[in-house]
Design a protein around this nucleic acid. Sequence first.
DNA 1: ACAGTAACCTGTTTGC
DNA 2: TGCAAACAGGTTACTG
Length: 269
Amino acid sequence: MPELPEVETTARGIEPFLVGRDIQAIEVRDPRLRWPVPANVQQACGQKVARVWRRAKYILIDLENGHLLIHLGMSGSIRVLTEPSQPGKHDHFDILLENHTIRFNDPRRFGAFLWSDSPATSHPLLASLGPEPLSDQFDTDYLYRRARGRKLAVKNFIMDGRVVVGVGNIYASEALYMAGIHPSRAAGRISADRYTSLVNAIRDVLQRAIRHGGTSLRDFAGSDGTPGYFAQELLVYGRAGQACFQCSADIRQKVIGQRSSFYCVNCQR
DNA sequence: ACAGTAACCTGTTTGC
DNA sequence: TGCAAACAGGTTACTG
């Protein structure tokens, strides 16, 4: 489901169907999402799509005037339909193009579909977000500086979107393992050198996951029910009780900040 | 400003 | 087998 690599994959997947095309209609059949889908999304109708891109875990659709924001939440997915089909349960809205339909499905309803008049990055939900993990602004100096004086667990620190965006629960565990840092360690008590490792690990794991098309491309690519490619690459996530690949100790699972975390007590300090 | 927690939902898995 | 509890990839809002 939607971690940054999947949002990226989804955005790239729908882009060619949208850019340069006119939005003919937006059909909202179940507006109950994180926030009720507002009527003003209809302003997109009749407009041509200029750009489709991603910021944090938001998919942004830039129009000639205004912007659509889509968030997949925990369980959202988007499919491109090439021929008409009956909407199913949890299919909340469609974006109708001349030859295709973009269909949004979200059982848990933590997703969002919103409109912004001004550039999407100035929307209240996006305005105070931290840098993209794959951008130059996200480096050792930045992360080390932001961590000064912080006492919360480093795992929660890197999952805070105001610090850096796009690091979800899976990749937080993975990156900390790769960097050899214990997820419960206070963010302010980690050396600059170790933050260098962490920055590299975050970059590396996200890039690799994107290259693999995310962890559950199935949502987008026509479901065959098989888990995504990246699931096989996971080093600690979901491996509680199994042997660490580096030292063979049992991988532990612990709840940190209300989320399951996976780590090796030997390899992570 | 910071840290911790509750809350928003439904579907699937786990445990008795 | 049946049922209830626990859990799931995200984020905001509230509390102290």
